[in-house]
Amino acid sequence: MKVSVTQTGGPLGVPMSTALDSADLSEGDAAALTARADAAVRAPAPEPERRFPAQLGYTVTVEPDDGPPVQSSYVEGAMPPDVAGLVRYVQDHPSSTA
């Protein structure tokens, strides 16, 4: 499973992409990524609407090993807690790639 997060907005408006692949992780970290990704896939994706140009937006793409990719977009403050946890996990994990 691979999870990609693209963050947009912010004061500079420069997109930042981060990805985490379970194939590059320990068994425990891969299980944690899968659990977080499964919760995020089930979370409803609201229609992203920025209230101001610098508001952060996130596009989360989950590519399971055995199915089609699932992509959802969110804005900061309207992201379900499960998705926010997944985004933090991917962005902060030492094995993440840019």
Results as ranks from 00 to 15, higher is better:
residue 4 S to A: 04
residue 5 V to A: 04
residue 6 T to A: 02
residue 6 T to H: 06
residue 7 Q to E: 15
residue 7 Q to A: 14
residue 8 T to M: 03
residue 8 T to G: 00
residue 9 G to T: 07
residue 10 G to M: 03
residue 12 L to K: 14
residue 12 L to R: 15
residue 17 S to P: 11
residue 17 S to W: 03
residue 17 S to A: 11
residue 17 S to T: 15
residue 18 T to F: 12
residue 20 L to N: 05
residue 24 D to L: 09
residue 25 L to E: 04
residue 25 L to R: 06
residue 26 S to H: 00
residue 27 E to D: 09
residue 27 E to L: 14
residue 27 E to C: 06
residue 27 E to H: 14
residue 28 G to R: 15
residue 30 A to P: 03
residue 31 A to S: 13
residue 31 A to N: 00
residue 32 A to M: 13
residue 32 A to W: 04
residue 32 A to R: 12
residue 33 L to P: 10
residue 34 T to D: 09
residue 36 R to T: 01
residue 37 A to Y: 06
residue 37 A to S: 12
residue 38 D to T: 14
residue 40 A to H: 05
residue 42 R to F: 00
residue 43 A to E: 13
residue 44 P to Q: 08
residue 45 A to M: 07
residue 49 E to Q: 14
residue 49 E to N: 09
residue 50 R to K: 14
residue 51 R to F: 04
residue 53 P to Y: 04
residue 54 A to E: 15
residue 55 Q to V: 11
residue 56 L to G: 07
residue 57 G to Q: 07
residue 58 Y to G: 09
residue 58 Y to E: 08
residue 61 T to D: 02
residue 62 V to K: 11
residue 64 P to T: 13
residue 65 D to C: 03
residue 65 D to K: 08
residue 65 D to T: 03
residue 67 G to P: 14
residue 67 G to Q: 08
residue 68 P to G: 11
residue 69 P to E: 07
residue 71 Q to I: 05
residue 72 S to N: 14
residue 72 S to R: 11
residue 73 S to C: 06
residue 74 Y to N: 10
residue 74 Y to P: 09
residue 75 V to A: 10
residue 75 V to K: 02
residue 77 G to Q: 07
residue 79 M to S: 12
residue 79 M to G: 10
residue 80 P to L: 01
residue 81 P to V: 12
residue 83 V to R: 06
residue 83 V to M: 00
residue 85 G to C: 04
residue 86 L to R: 05
residue 86 L to E: 02
residue 86 L to S: 00
residue 87 V to L: 05
residue 88 R to D: 08
residue 90 V to W: 00
residue 96 S to T: 15
residue 96 S to C: 10
residue 97 T to W: 06
residue 98 A to D: 13
